[in-house]
Design a protein around this nucleic acid. Sequence first.
DNA 1: TTTTTGATATATCTGTTTGATATATATTAG
DNA 2: CTAATATATATCAAACAGATATATCAAAAA
Lengths: 181, 181
Amino acid sequence: MAKERKIDMVILGLLSHEDLTGYDIKKRIDGAISFFWKGSFGNIYPALKDMETQGLISKNDTSVGGRERITYKITEAGEKALNNWLKAEQVENELKYETLLKLFFGASERTEVSVHNIEVFEKQIQDDLKMLKVYYETLEKSLDNKDHVYYLLTVSFGIETYEAYLKWCNKAKKMLIDNLK
Amino acid sequence: MAKERKIDMVILGLLSHEDLTGYDIKKRIDGAISFFWKGSFGNIYPALKDMETQGLISKNDTSVGGRERITYKITEAGEKALNNWLKAEQVENELKYETLLKLFFGASERTEVSVHNIEVFEKQIQDDLKMLKVYYETLEKSLDNKDHVYYLLTVSFGIETYEAYLKWCNKAKKMLIDNLK
DNA sequence: TTTTTGATATATCTGTTTGATATATATTAG
DNA sequence: CTAATATATATCAAACAGATATATCAAAAA
């Protein structure tokens, strides 16, 4: 058996707040969610079709003029599926860092190459961290919205881990330079 | 065009140290590498076949008795490909954490469900952290081996980020309990 | 005014990866 | 001696990523 399709839960979660088109869903995922979960048209559209067949969501045509526009709404069965998933013990947490892979095999090349690779990573993280801090400040001002408390927690996860990454970058560079020259 | 197949580089990296069978490669990946990169028979064996055709690795039959055993060796072209990848700027770093996904949609359920989900995550991380610390202590004793310096850096990455996760777990649980009762 | 760029929107295709399963041999533990 | 586990190759279905195709519409630029 193949693993359960997780994109379904992302879609249900988003639809539990508002009716959306496939395109909207992609945009939402590309926003605040993207740092811990990704989506693509290639899995969003087939998932919408399947879930409609399963009765977890319902389709309604909101086309204007010649412009096609299919909005989806979550059904009661969909809400149930979402809550069951939220309560399920099993979770799949996965890190996939090419930077660490390169570092693992770093001894095949000159030390400077690995130091440079860490710097590339460091730059990426610094940029992403700035974005997360902007999100954080915005959310902090509207914690009366219950959803925002949860959003803030995921953003705070990002900030704390990215700060840990940056600390590691410094240690790692130092260690490479000290130990290997 | 599809993205380049990364498993090729994992295989080349491993073969740059020793000759291995597909099964061996799987075992190596499941070990110290698995926390930042995964592999499966379903992509290892096809990759081995392709890379042999491309001349990046060479096959030699080391079967004993009726037991099939195909060992692969890296070629000069393979070493070149590995070093080119190590020097390439572009990297793909990706976090895929279902725990954060659940937390993001946490407002759909009772606060206790999210607190429990954080505790499940916390337990997982505590266990993994113990393993990483054992790796660390073992590696620390053999830093005369140049490779081990690099291995240690990846393990240290894991330790630092997992410790940051645990700190976040406490903060997050407290925030949920304070803000939402 | 016309053109072009960019955003909206659905959909599909190829290649890659995951996870499971099938098959068979060798070794170890009870 | 037998059962369970480890070794080993291989393939399949489902899921996913990334790119591309197609078309509409709004806004900005020429």
